[in-house]
Amino acid sequence: MCGRFAQYSSRDDYFDALKIEDDELIYDPQPIGRYNVAPGTKVLLLNQRNEHLHLDPVYWGYGPEWWNKQPLINARGETAATGRMFKPLWVHGRAIVPADGWFEWKKEGDKKQPYFIYHKQHLPLFFAAIGKAPYNKEHGHEGFVIVTAASQKGMVDIHDRRPLVLTADVISEWLDSNTSARRAEEIAHDAALPEKAFTWHPVDKAVGSIKNQDANLINEITPD
């Protein structure tokens, strides 16, 4: 997965898709309006804390003090639950990134063409994420990463990795601190949307600059 996605719908749209009750979160009909979310910025992250759901702005990236490289932004779903870096986060820091789609760059000849990938029915997406909890506290560069899966079928032509997008009906269980790490592995394996749920189209290369943030970034174009 490349390091850009879109989170432009309103909180209402995301919460309605999850069938979250009115008293569980404060609704907000205003669009979030982020069409080019980049690593190193704070992203609204859905998480459970003290048996209540919260939506907190959290740093996208994970680099503990002993990590002397750039903060990581993704974790492979095949190994995140057992690897040294991410196992503690898998147990105690499961979260969800509400989104509308993501961007990937495909090499075409000697150039790279960006594509926007989204649900065929334009439904909200829910990326599985793990990070440093609790999310209402500042942890520096110990923020969160998006869990990824291997791409298959047509999507592999765009990129060999993709976000692990969970179905709305398992989000509550994924977030629940009482859900075991093993059960969370099962959810990641069995409740992810398949490639056939998505479609994609080429978009303007302006998405390559984080300075560009307008809605035109997700519009389909005819490549040169």
Rank of each mutant, 00 (worst) to 15 (best):
I221K: 06
P114C: 08
L125C: 13
P194M: 00
K106Q: 14
G77P: 01
I130C: 01
G83E: 14
V91F: 01
E24T: 06
L55H: 08
P114T: 10
A150G: 13
I73R: 02
G131D: 05
G77F: 00
L164D: 00
K153Y: 14
M1W: 05
Y118E: 03
E220S: 15
A150L: 13
T167N: 02
Q30W: 04
P31L: 13
D214Q: 12
G154P: 05
K106T: 05
G33L: 14
L89E: 02
R94S: 00
Y8R: 11
N50F: 11
E138F: 07
A192D: 01
E21I: 07
E220V: 13
A188H: 01
L46D: 08
L123W: 03
S151W: 09
D13I: 11
D176H: 05
P31G: 13
L55A: 11
G109R: 13
Q7G: 12
D28S: 14
S209L: 09
G208R: 07
G63I: 12
D23L: 06
G40H: 04
K211S: 11
K111C: 08
E21P: 08
W67G: 10
A206E: 10
I218E: 07
D190Q: 04
Y59I: 08
V156Y: 02
A80G: 04
H201G: 10
A184P: 09
A38D: 13
Q152V: 10
H54G: 15
D157G: 15
V147H: 00
A133H: 02
L46G: 08
K107M: 10
T82A: 07
N219T: 12
T148L: 05
F15A: 11
R182L: 03
A38G: 14
R94H: 00
S177W: 12
L164R: 00
V207L: 05
D16G: 10
A168C: 13
V203C: 06
L25W: 12
K69T: 08
Y27R: 15
E51R: 15
R84Q: 12
L123D: 07
G3W: 04
D160W: 02
F5L: 14
S151G: 12
V156M: 10
F198W: 08
L193N: 01
H122F: 15
H159A: 01
G40D: 12
E173H: 09
A99C: 07
F5Q: 11
E173L: 05
W200T: 06
G143M: 10
A168Q: 13
D110R: 11
W174Y: 03
A6I: 06
M155Y: 02
D214E: 14
A191R: 01
V165R: 02
Q152Y: 14
N68R: 09
S9L: 15
Q113A: 07
A95H: 04
P29K: 09
P88A: 06
I158P: 05
F126W: 13
L55S: 13
A184F: 04
